[in-house]
């Protein structure tokens, strides 16, 4: 068996090619994902998310419970799970969902048995961040878990206005990822495939129905 030392030694024994040097921050490239001057983050997040078939809702904090449950009921979801990162809105959502007659569990409990997680109709998550320029939500293993945001056919993500970052640079350079745990993940719109004759199909392995609820600052 090849071990680390011999594996790397084989690579080190080769001549070195020319090295253009590492880009430093002062020459950081302008990726095509930057915000335009004066553009409002939440507006851009909405526009980009909608362009990849996410349904976006703009609400104030007191409307979160009713909005989320409205989406779930419209989708015909019965069994729903809430993830840890929904925290500030979890009680409101749970209460509204229970009133509407939905069956609500915590995601950690649902995920303790794969079959149970696989039978969920919907999950409701918070997020670690959202990226305005790409219309993405960012979830972490420590919050929504690895599969919390895509195990069910319907997904609703609640995003606070102060969680929105401009673009990928701000996300990767910021401190927000420090607490992510074993995974962080960007998710932009419903699951999709165009493998069969280029026909776009939503909802292959992940949700076909993806909602983002943007909560305005108080």
């Amino acid at each position: 068996m090849t071990d680390r030392a011999s594996f790397l030694a084989a690579i080190r024994s080769t001549p070195r090619g020319s090295d253009p040097g590492l880009l430093d921050r002062s020459v950081a490239p302008d990726a095509p994902t930057q915000l335009r001057d004066g553009e409002h983050r939440a507006d851009r997040l909405q526009a980009e998310a909608e362009s990849v078939s996410t349904v976006v809702h703009r609400v104030v904090a007191t409307e979160v419970g009713a909005t989320v449950v409205g989406v779930l009921v419209a989708a015909g979801a019965q069994r729903i799970a809430l993830t840890e990162d929904l925290a500030p809105f979890a009680d409101a959502v749970r209460e509204a969902a229970t009133t509407a007659g939905l069956s609500v569990v915590g995601y950690a409990e649902a995920a303790s048995k794969r079959a149970q997680a696989g039978a969920l109709d919907a999950t409701v998550t918070g997020c670690l961040a959202a990226v305005a320029a790409t219309g993405s939500i960012v979830t972490a293993a420590s919050g929504a878990g690895r599969a919390g945001a895509l195990i069910a056919p319907n997904h609703v993500c609640v995003v606070r206005d102060d969680q929105i970052v401009d673009g990928l640079h701000e996300l990767f350079d910021g401190d927000v990822l420090a607490e992510a745990g074993s995974i962080f993940a960007l998710q932009s719109g419903p699951s999709r495939s165009a493998d069969i004759e280029k026909v776009l199909i939503l909802g292959v392995h992940g949700p076909g129905n993806a909602h983002v609820v943007i909560v305005a600052p108080d």
């Binding site: 990726a31 095509p32 994902t33 980009e48 362009s51 990849v52 993830t83 840890e84 995601y107 950690a108 995920a111 997680a117 790409t134 219309g135 993405s136 293993a141 420590s142 878990g145 690895r146 599969a147 919390g148 895509l150 990928l168 745990g181 074993s182 995974i183 962080f184 993940a185 960007l186 998710q187 932009s188 719109g189 419903p190 699951s191 999709r192 992940g206």
Partner: peptide, 30 residues
Amino acid sequence: PLLTGHGTGQQITTYVTMVAGPRREQEPDG
């Protein structure tokens, strides 16, 4: 953005996942 734009013409791939090891304590799945 280049991988995605040149691959499928999307701005970003729907799921981008960064994996740093197995499930940790307090994490619900993995």
